[in-house]
Amino acid sequence: MIQKLVNILLVEDDEVDVMNVKRAFTKNNIKNELFVAGNGVEALDMLRSSIIPLPRIIILDINMPKMNGIEFLKIIREDENLKNISVFVMTTSNEDSDKINAYNLNVAGYILKPLSFEKFINSVATLKNFWSLCEM
């Protein structure tokens, strides 16, 4: 489906993971503009101060300093301007409590970070195909 490329915000504290997402985007020819915040507090600042254009998609880590992913999700779901953003969790946390909390806050998907970069590229390819079906 041909549509305007939406902006994506990655909320991730680990610099290696940020680099991996950027590389996986390049490998999969994903041309959407990608903004990065290092934790929930920084992401909220970016979203509320209009430092960046409002993203339609957020890729969210769970375990982060200052404000974790679940706390961040709770806040944006209660914010009239931010609540409709599609959120995809991408984390190493395999805890059932994190999955339950994330789905109760209506994330569009909970993805476990694959250990190898090859698998990571495939995960991002699957996401890209899914996004291509969606009207944002």
């Binding site: 995960s123 699957t126 899914f130 079906l133 009207e135």
Partner: peptide
């Protein structure tokens, strides 16, 4: 996700193929 509804047989298979890959990739 908000998606255009496919109507042709082939389109429907392609549509659910992508969705199924996605469902398999998430926890």
């Amino acid at each position: 996700g908000y998606m255009h509804k496919p109507s042709e047989k082939g389109e429907i298979v392609a549509f659910f193929s992508i969705l199924n890959d996605y469902w398999n990739s998430i926890e």
